[in-house]
Design a protein around this nucleic acid. Structure first.
Lengths: 224, 224
DNA sequence: ACAAAAATAATAGTATTACTATCATTTATA
DNA sequence: TATAAATGATAGTAATACTATTATTTTTGT
């Protein structure tokens, strides 16, 4: 029996739990690869079925539609990252060091976690960067929110917000700053690689530059 | 002859210039209304044609596909807003006051500009908030960028970056901070209305709160 | 005022997408 | 080993994202 990390997922996101079968795990694995490769707009259940060697109808037994599958893998990522953050800042007592560590985790390239054999976190991180906001930028965000689809993201935002308050209990906008850090860690990464004129980062395209920018931004306002 | 403001658009965005005919102007006008109402995913040229009272093929003579139409109206907005910013900060000499004014313009609700009869800027502003990032979050962002589709956005970002440098010539990340301000002015607005747990703004949902947050964020790091 | 050119309308057609339905077969489980 | 559950194979539908053709209307240059 191998040790595997399992992220508890919202049950209304799927029709059948993809963690519980080989086909289900293949759906997750290959959807991550395929969305990463083709982008979410070009991603279809038919292509996914072909990649797995099953049929379109087979996928539909697990997920109602591709949007729910996207929300599933994205909220899986937030759950996994929340776990990483707790784990990796466990012994850090200084809130400033902790917040710096969180910023680093958010803005660095992720490497594949061997504890989760069917999920490639490195690809998933790229998906978060390019497709993450499409999970909530919809006309049905209200209903999706009622179904708690964004709970892992909100939880992460709260965790970060609490660390901000530890740094400065009088800071007025812990949640907005937290969501700004999270979103900007990814958006500046996208801009750096695709629309570099929107950033000040040089050609070597190192994520450290984003970390420096965010640290500068965050600590000047939090420590004010 | 009525006085109308015209925004010069990138000619590779369209097949036939929509500003030059009644049908073209109707395409712009009704696409803004329809995208605002149904969201970009549900928006189709067929529905648009029905709304206008023309045919699908008629729309295709103006725009190759709905993505280019989205990019068109979004870059129109950035062009228009860039003009507003220059116009409304013309007599402001203090760079700090100027930057504050820009933040206010970016984060406030926009009202319809009567100088542009076929464009409802108020609706367009809502589209920027909910659909704006979909214009660049694609697999073909590289080619689109080569075609200069994002020039108005970059120009705005440069303008804001220059004002930031006027405030503090030693500030290291003028472009990244500018793109952060612009994107966050919209994203915090979206969160405030749709995912309020990601913000610290109260129920009255006033845009002033976003302005305060952004001013706090920007001026603590720029004036450091 | 009239011919030529350009734009529009009307219609049809295709490949792909986003599903739903049915039934046979394989696999897990009690 | 019977039975249920999951999967596979196949088919079908409505909508989407286009392209093509031809007829009609509108614009324009002389």
């Amino acid at each position: 029996m191998r040790l595997e990390v399992q992220i508890k997922m919202n049950e209304t996101l799927y029709l059948r739990d993809p963690e519980q079968s080989e086909l289900g795990r293949n759906i997750i694995k290959h959807s991550i690869q395929l969305i990463h490769k083709t982008g979410f707009e070009s991603f279809t259940f038919k292509k996914l079925a072909e990649a797995i060697g099953t049929t379109e109808a087979g996928i539909y037994r697990y997920f109602e539609n591709k949007h729910k599958l996207l929300v599933y893998i994205i909220s899986w990522y937030w759950g996994w990252l929340g776990f990483q953050i707790v784990y990796q800042t466990k012994n850090v007592n200084d809130p400033i060091a902790k917040l710096k560590q969180v910023i680093t985790l958010l803005a660095s390239n992720v490497k594949d976690d061997i504890m989760t054999s069917h999920v490639d976190e490195s690809l998933l991180h790229q998906i978060i960067i390019a497709e993450g906001s499409k999970s909530y930028l919809t006309k049905h965000v209200g209903e999706d929110n009622k179904q708690q689809y964004f709970k892992p993201f909100k939880d992460l935002c709260n965790t970060v917000g609490e660390i901000i308050l530890e740094c400065n209990p009088n800071y007025q906008y812990p949640h907005s700053l937290a969501s700004t850090i999270i979103e900007m860690a990814h958006l500046q990464n996208f801009f750096m690689h695709n629309l570099p004129a929107l950033t000040d980062f040089d050609k070597n395209k190192k994520e450290d530059q984003i970390i420096d920018f965010l640290n500068n931004l965050v600590f000047s306002s939090v420590n004010k």
